[in-house]
Design a binder for these strands. Structure first.
Length: 289
DNA sequence: CACTTGACCTGTCCGC
DNA sequence: TGCGGACAGGTCAAGT
């Protein structure tokens, strides 16, 4: 599911909805989704208060008053949806179809708060997880050790972007931009969208890109991600935000899942190919090998 | 080391 | 309608 803009949208929503709430209970349906010992749960999760929700790359961190953090990765199909029983939506509300049915068969973890509101971790494919650990140990996770810089940070420059790519000079630009150790947070949707924006064929080898092309790609990554955050992210299939709402970026996508439609820039038919093992959408005229 | 492929899961869609 | 296979927003382990 969720790439940087979707995770950022969830983070912003949770910061409005769950800060200061006290956790009174938790339940989970399998240890893979919630790999935590009962002792840690009793000592550091139950009766804790939510202090802050943070994001790094595609990971979320819910910091608790006990000095522990729930580190969360939503992977492909994870959702975090908050439901307050006092404000459950009525029939006909845009969010009603999801909210009113939670929990459902994809619900992996339920966090309950002291006012009978709940945070549901839903994950159809069970790739995601929610790990309780000391806040100070989060940076020691293997993923956190290797993940690259945040592309939307002000201090992240086009020069740094190009330099980090050059570590992957002999692979395709699509594989390199999806590599989280190069740049954080880019997934399949924004890889295709930014490569189209920069007019670069995803199979091009990194070593063949010019400085101008690196700069264009840098600008496009930041442009598409900022636009998507503004639109509440992309709902390709499952994604919803912390209130159960879909994102609208797909209405603004130029190539992703638009095979058979025309390129908005030149009118050529968009095609779908496979690059780096992933479905890849391009305009074959704008993006030449 | 750099790079590619398959595995992890459930659900949906498409062709026969 | 049913069945088999390919595919889906991500990462990791194991292979070359």
């Amino acid at each position: 599911m969720p790439e940087l803009p979707e995770v950022e949208t969830v983070k912003r929503g949770l910061n409005k909805l769950i800060i200061g709430r006290k956790i009174t209970a938790v339940s989970s349906d399998n240890p893979k989704s919630f790999p935590n010992s009962p002792g840690d749960v009793d000592n550091f999760l139950i009766s804790s208060t939510v202090e802050l929700v943070r994001r790094r790359a595609k990971m979320l961190m819910i910091d608790l008053s006990t000095g522990y953090t729930l580190a969360i990765h939503l992977k492909m199909t994870g959702q975090l949806v908050f439901v307050d029983n006092k404000t459950r939506f009525g029939a006909g509300h845009p969010n009603d179809s999801l909210i009113s049915q939670l929990p459902d068969k994809s619900t992996r973890v339920i966090l309950s708060f002291d006012d009978d509101s709940h945070l549901y971790f839903n994950d159809q494919r069970k790739f995601g997880w929610m790990k309780l650990m000391p806040t100070l140990e989060v940076p020691n996770l293997p993923f956190m050790q290797k993940v690259g810089p945040e592309p939307l940070n002000d201090e992240f420059t086009a020069e740094q972007f190009a330099d980090r790519f050059k570590r992957r000079a002999r692979t395709s630009v699509k594989a390199a931009i999806l590599d989280q150790s190069v740049v954080a947070g880019v997934g399949n949707i924004y890889a295709d969208e930014s490569l189209w924006g920069a007019k670069i064929h995803p199979s091009r080898l990194v070593g063949s890109l010019s400085e101008v092309e690196f700069k264009d790609l840098y600008d496009q990554v930041r442009f598409v991600m900022n636009l998507s955050i503004e639109k509440g992210g992309s709902t390709n299939r499952n994604y919803v935000d912390a209130e159960g709402k879909k994102g609208s970026y797909m209405d603004f996508a130029n190539v992703f899942r638009r095979e058979g439609q025309v390129c908005p820039r030149c009118g050529t038919e968009i095609i779908k190919i496979k690059v780096a093992g992933r479905g890849t959408h391009i305009c074959p005229l704008c993006q030449k090998i």
